[in-house]
Design a protein around this nucleic acid. Structure first.
Lengths: 232, 232
DNA sequence: CCAAAAGTGTTATGCTTACACCCATGT
DNA sequence: ACATGGGTGTAAGCATAACACTTTTGG
């Protein structure tokens, strides 16, 4: 039971699926392993949990070696992987996180580290491909029912830009018209009052928006089976 | 200087928030601690992860000491807790699971173990109250957009019975009329062809239904920002 | 015939998509 | 003027909530 004075111990790693929309594609931050096991394969950033850290503190510390942590706009725990075979060298649990970096930033990364479009992944080490794909699922779901878009977008943006971010993350075309209506109705977006002209060629200047809040909020409480309305 | 490539190790526990609707209330399975720390407080069932198990295998093994595991209709990972202070005696990570037991069963449980209505919890040990409440949130959300009801319901049931289960789990009144429409539209329920009469007194015999599937399925793909319909 | 419980019909509402149309700007 | 992209108006579709009404049983 819990009080077994004999504490079982095991190595514990943290891993991050760090995602960013770059060049119109959803991309993941990966580093290439030089040593066995999985030499040559690509891996998620991460490392070992230290003695007096929480998992999230550990994740932020380790991520700092790859990207400027201040540039990570959102970090949330995904799942803890525990297959005894997942690491061929030793028993190791790994807790995976989803990290997001706003579009437009280009953090300096180490030599062995690169962004990879999530649709054309190289050979990945361990169970990292599964983790990456489940991170993408989580992102897609939360884009629909929370304000998580703030974590993909720069501080301010036009609707066309935001539409491209959503389309890249969701993997399907998104209509700027309808995106605007949904996000305004939910009061996720604010008009900054500014306007921006597109590069060359004509066109009406676009309204520049920002997200009203940059903390995760559930904005579309699951519609179904909601409590009865109390207004008589 | 310590070689950092050596794996950090820490004790790892698994914990289950086991929920069941009994007597019209959502209840949680808890056992009362006899020893320090938290002697007298109530705790979630769980224990230490063994060397060659996955977390889920470990969870099922430890749960078997409390309830017949065959009676657990659903088990899913929630979250891994890692606050270094969460266990005052030693550093310990804990991975929490949500377990569900169908209504109507009454598994034999040990002396120190009892069901508690989740609305009137006793003093709980460690961070177990937080875990329990987040388990309830997860259950409530998934009842709305998946077929998870199968895990709360007996093999067959009338709509009035199912309505009571949903109401207990969701914590608000549910209309049998509308529940029927939603679940039939989504093809979650099947008519068994049988009918059942209520105890004494009149009343039309109710149709007996069963869930079409007893594996978790997402039935209400988040409505918003879905891909454009391809039908011209 | 009446009470009780189950189930169906109907309407209203709200959110979303689709698409046509109008607006503002550069060349 | 006209091309280009931004934004609004509007209608249609669909799922759900609310509630009245019908059906089926027992007494």
């Amino acid at each position: 039971m819990v009080d077994d004075s004999q504490a079982k111990t095991s190595a514990h790693a943290v891993l991050a699926a760090v995602l960013q929309v770059r060049g119109g594609q959803l991309q993941a931050l990966l580093w290439q392993r030089a040593r066995e096991p999985f030499a040559g394969s690509w891996a998620l950033p991460g490392g070992a949990l230290a003695a007096d850290e929480t998992l999230e503190e550990s994740m932020r510390r380790l991520l700092a070696e790859k990207v400027d942590v201040r540039e990570v706009s959102h970090l949330e725990q995904l799942e803890t992987r525990s297959d005894p075979q997942r690491n061929p060298k030793r028993r190791e649990l790994a807790t995976a996180y989803l990290g997001l970096v706003p579009s437009g930033l280009d953090p300096k990364v180490p030599e062995d580290t690169r962004w990879h479009p999530i649709d054309e992944l190289p050979e990945l080490a361990y169970d990292h491909e599964e983790i990456l794909l489940s991170a993408r699922e989580r992102l897609r779901a939360k884009l629909s029912y929370t304000n998580l878009g703030f974590a993909l977008a720069p501080p301010s943006f036009t609707l066309a830009e935001l539409r491209d971010l959503y389309a890249a993350a969701l993997g399907h075309p998104v209509s700027a018209t309808n995106l605007q209506r949904v996000l305004l109705r939910r009061r996720l977006l604010e008009d900054t009052g500014e306007r921006r002209r597109y590069g060359s060629g004509g066109g009406r200047p676009a309204t520049i928006y920002r997200f009203h809040s940059c903390r995760l909020e559930i904005t579309d409480q699951f519609a179904v089976l909601r409590p009865p309305t109390m207004i008589p």
